[in-house]
Amino acid sequence: MAGKTIPKDIQQEIFARVDQFNQQELQMEIRYVVKFKGMFLYLNRADFGGRPQPIARLKFTGTIDGWEFVIYKYSHDNYDPDELMFPGTEHLDGTIEGAMRCGLEAYSV
């Protein structure tokens, strides 16, 4: 895949999808926020007005609905690609929405 960053049009689509998910599926005190670094999208969640905390890292594979998901492990303070057993994995379908649903179960509020 050409390029080392997520294209701007994909980034804009992600912002729109996260905003829609936040409005339709979460309470007002809880929201997902994202940041981008190279080919990675960092999915963080702010609960009850707090500072956003890491949930997962998604790697862009060239398509908006084909993300590779890696959970954040608080016990090791890192993103662990070898961690495969955690609640919510049934939601992982390559989409941003599936990753956010997984995060809600893996780190319940």
Rank of each mutant, 00 (worst) to 15 (best):
F69E: 06
Q12P: 03
G88E: 02
E29P: 06
G38R: 03
V70E: 15
P87Q: 09
G88D: 09
K37R: 13
R31Q: 15
R101V: 04
F40Q: 08
F60R: 06
D47G: 01
F21C: 10
K8Q: 04
W67M: 02
T95E: 15
R101P: 01
Q23N: 00
L92F: 08
F69P: 05
Q53N: 07
I10N: 04
I64L: 10
T89F: 03
P81E: 05
A56V: 07
S108A: 10
E29S: 08
A106R: 13
K37W: 09
G103L: 02
T95P: 11
G66E: 15
Q12L: 03
H76W: 08
M100S: 05
K59M: 06
G88R: 08
G50I: 00
C102G: 02
E25F: 02
F60Y: 13
A56I: 03
N22I: 03
D77H: 08
A16V: 05
F36R: 12
F40Y: 12
S75K: 15
G49V: 00
E105D: 02
M85R: 13
R45E: 07
M39E: 12
L41I: 02
S108C: 04
P54D: 00
T95K: 13
A16M: 06
K8S: 06
I6S: 10
T95I: 05
A99R: 11
E90Q: 13
I30F: 12
F36I: 03
Y74F: 02
D65C: 00
F40M: 11
Q20C: 03
C102Y: 05
M85T: 15
I55V: 04
K4Y: 05
L26A: 10
M100A: 05
G50T: 05
I6K: 03
I14P: 13
R45D: 02
S108F: 12
T61L: 04
I6W: 10
P87V: 00
D19Q: 07
D82M: 15
Q27E: 07
F60I: 04
G94E: 06
F60E: 06
D82F: 15
G66W: 11
I6N: 09
P52M: 02
P87I: 09
I71L: 10
E13I: 01
G3K: 08
L41S: 03
D80Y: 13
N44H: 00
A56M: 13
R51W: 10
I55L: 11
L41Y: 06
S75L: 12
G103Q: 09
D19N: 06
E13V: 07
P52T: 03
R51C: 04
Q23V: 02
V109C: 07
R31D: 14
L104Q: 12
Q11A: 06
Y107W: 01
L41V: 02
A16S: 11
A16T: 02
S108L: 09
Q20S: 09
R51I: 00
M39R: 10
I10E: 00
D65H: 04
D65R: 05
D47W: 09
P52F: 07
G103T: 00
Y72K: 12
R17I: 03
Y72L: 00
I6L: 11
I64E: 08
